[in-house]
């Protein structure tokens, strides 16, 4: 099927089999390999991307369902120069070890803080309970997200 969508601000148009998941389409066709597949059945959260502002599991969505949507992946939350405030906070707090769940944590936390820059610790824990990390025990991840909140409030907030 011919589909069009926008990913990280770039319009793309491609042919895709209906059965291809959005995650596989991003990874294999568009080579946006920052979106990771940890379970492919909607539990681990590593494949989280942002579709029209909402964090979703890219393994539970077909690429054809993304037709006409605006998609942001972890690559779209990054630039080549400096780490974003959220990324820098993760680094500062050692909120990653193997790094495999990290893109899903970043996209989920970004979507959350964009919507709710005042999310408290309990809310952050609740939201991130949909993303499994096996290395860190989560404590530093929660700290990193809480500290990044300031950058999402007020006029400095990222788009």
């Amino acid at each position: 099927m011919r589909i069009k969508f926008e990913v990280n601000g770039t319009k793309v148009e491609l042919d895709v089999e209906p059965r291809v998941s959005l995650a596989d389409c991003l990874r294999d066709t568009l080579r946006l390999t920052g979106t990771h597949l940890g379970c492919e059945h909607g539990v681990c959260g590593a494949c989280t991307v942002i579709v029209d502002g909402a964090a979703v599991r890219a393994c539970l969505m077909l690429a054809v369902q993304a037709h006409g949507e605006h998609i942001v992946t972890v690559e779209g939350l990054s630039n080549d120069d400096a780490l974003s405030p959220l990324q820098a906070s993760f680094r500062k707090h050692h909120a990653l070890q193997c790094g495999f769940c990290t893109p899903g944590m970043i996209t989920t936390a970004h979507a959350l803080l964009t919507e709710e820059p005042d999310a408290d610790a309990e809310r952050v824990r609740e939201v991130l309970s949909g993303n499994i990390c096996r290395c860190t025990g989560y404590i530093p991840i929660i700290k990193a997200v809480l500290e990044a909140r300031a950058h999402y409030a007020g006029e400095d907030a990222p788009p």
Partner: peptide, 8 residues
């Protein structure tokens, strides 16, 4: 469910 599932 969880946040991401709740969005879909």
């Amino acid at each position: 469910a969880h946040y991401q599932i709740r969005n879909r």
